[in-house]
């Protein structure tokens, strides 16, 4: 029941997108998100959609994996759409009781939905095609200059990569503890909010204890394998830009240019 979260789950296959330098993918994801906010017309979203479709195609990741990640934000999506739909002032098209739907509202709600969907799918493409280790490597390298400002870049990226590795394990564990407590008659569903919150204690206490135990074990295992922070460390997979990475940057620049042009000119 908790395994539907795709974010942070790597999909293993071999594709151009998988082989791209994580820095390219990180930059591209950030740029793509920005582009979603630059454009605000149908042509623009069409371009953004086509671009995303092309990337997904190239990544060879089945579409259903991307869509599965959507389930977890469905609630957010519905709220965003409803708010935009009913609360945008403008030309009234429909009236339900006290709620008015305006032409602008429909337009904004649609755009908001598209934006959110693209945003989530766009970032899932990155996490599905990049191993978390690779991703944090990319982040470490991109943020490297911050080291001079005494930001512990290596440590942060190491923490993130470990967190990502343990998410699936802890989710599975949550599932198991929940079942075990249900077997002891626990009820996680009924009752008011306070009762529900209280019923989580038998779930959360064991979960935290387990997480601490794992953290302790892992720290010991890392030390035993000579881990001593970022210094003296070499990389098994050092990041070196290839021809395909430079090409990808080119494509990205082109895409951004088109988005700006479409967003500004064709309003």
């Amino acid at each position: 029941m908790l395994r539907d979260i795709t974010l942070g789950q790597y999909y293993q296959t071999d594709s151009v997108i998988h082989r791209l330098d994580p820095r390219v993918k990180l930059t591209a994801t950030v740029c793509y998100i920005i582009s979603l906010f630059i454009v605000d017309n149908i042509a623009g979203y069409l371009i953004a959609g086509l671009f995303l479709a092309m990337i997904i195609r190239l990544s060879k990741v089945p579409l259903k994996f991307m869509v599965r990640g959507m389930k977890s934000i469905l609630f957010l999506l519905v709220i965003a759409v409803v708010f935009n739909l009913f609360l945008t002032p403008g030309e009234v098209v429909l009236t339900f009781w006290k709620l008015k739907i305006t032409r602008e509202g429909i337009r904004l709600a649609c755009f908001m939905a598209i934006r959110l969907v693209f945003l989530i799918i766009g970032s899932s493409v990155m996490t599905l095609t990049t191993t978390p280790n690779n991703l944090t490597d990319g982040m470490e390298k991109l943020l490297g200059p911050l080291r001079h400002l005494k930001v512990p870049v290596h440590e942060i990226s190491m923490m993130m990569s470990i967190a990502l590795r343990f998410i699936p394990i802890l989710l599975e564990e949550t599932d198991k503890i929940m079942k075990a407590q249900i077997a002891r008659g626990a009820d996680f569903e009924s009752g008011n909010l306070l009762k529900k919150a209280k019923s989580l204690v038998p779930l959360l206490v064991p979960l935290f204890i387990s997480a601490f135990r794992r953290a302790n074990d892992l720290a010991m295992a890392m030390e035993a394998r000579c881990y001593r922070g970022g210094e003296h460390r070499t990389k098994m997979k050092p990041l070196i830009y290839q021809k395909r990475d430079r090409m990808a940057y080119g494509v990205l620049a082109l895409y951004l240019a088109v988005c700006v042009a479409v967003g500004r000119i064709l309003l």
């Binding site: 564990e173 198991k176 075990a180 077997a183 206490v205 064991p206 204890i209």
Partner: peptide, 20 residues
């Protein structure tokens, strides 16, 4: 179902991980 779960007691693997 709740009655059933009290009739059929299930002890999971590593049950000590559920103590709280």
């Amino acid at each position: 179902k709740k009655e059933l779960r009290s009739r059929v007691g299930l002890v999971f693997q590593y049950p000590e991980h559920q103590l709280f």
